[in-house]
Amino acid sequence: MLPRLRGARVTDLIGLTLLGLLLIWLAVNFVKGPAAFIDISLIGLTNGTIYGVVALGYTLVYGILQLINFAHGDVFALSGLVASTVIVSVLGLDEGSSALVIIGGLAVTLVVIMVGFSLFNASIERVAYRPLRNAPRLAPLITAVGMSFVVENISLALYGVNYRTVPNLISHSDVIHIGGITYSWSKASVLIIVIPLLVVLSWFVRSTKQGKAMRAVAQDTEASAMMGIDVDHTIAVTFLIAGALAGAAGIVYLMQFNMRFDTGFELGLIAFTAAVLGGIGNLSGAVLGALCIGFIQAFNEGLGWFAPGSDWTRSMVFGILILVLVFRPEGILGEQTPEGA
């Protein structure tokens, strides 16, 4: 018993030291430039929110099927690319359009993309995963990798290798401008779109009949079927929701960054890391994990004093994934509460 206890203490000590150093590093950076620090935190919050929406798609599906849906990141990327077509070619929005037209246009795009991609995601489930429902776990996992390539190549075939972008539709004028701190409407729009979605999702899972069915299937598929829950239907609903979230994430990402066919690969990995970090299967955990990664990335790339810089971002994010898997495989909030919003 004693050596184990001592071992645990040593790990704790190392962990606490690292945490202390991290806090000191953040504090020094804050003192050196408070305005820049808050600016950077807001960037982290915005990006973390986008990662969170994608991470929710992974975690919802994992919670119910114990399947890592590798195709999810690519569905996200394709949704962003299609959104760019809708915004630029179909609706013809540009910087000159009036505010009302832009807001209306974006709302239409959001609805069209969310509905379209929820159906697209559910079709993937119907075609690729449902036939493997009773197969060994490895089979759907490999199919998911295959689906990821299929969707990525659909994006490549439709949009080529170039980055797609949309005009700056949302004014870059500031919502907040205090001292040196600025927060633009363009960044705020992410929160304006995403937060209501998260509230609705959380309410849906917690309080509706369908949500209850989702939680029941996540906890015990067979017992749920015995309770009269149509398991296939419930899984289809889960993929519909995940697809809608991927669509919403695609649009908000497109408003911030350029996208191309392979954007979903790396962002998918980051979002998946976020889901694992928070505790896969746990909805709040996915958002929390994504915010952590958003902040890590922003601080690492933005802070002035002894920040490792953007070359190190990936190493750090995936290094954290490894550390989490080694020391706390159940994630920050734990995975024992599937769909526990």
């Binding site: 509706t208 009949k209 209850k212 069915a213 029941a216 309770m227 009269g228 829950i229 609903v237």
Partner: peptide, 11 residues
């Protein structure tokens, strides 16, 4: 949850 199939409210 047991009453699931007896409830009719759809999505």
């Amino acid at each position: 949850v047991g009453m699931h199939s007896c409830l009719h409210g759809g999505i």
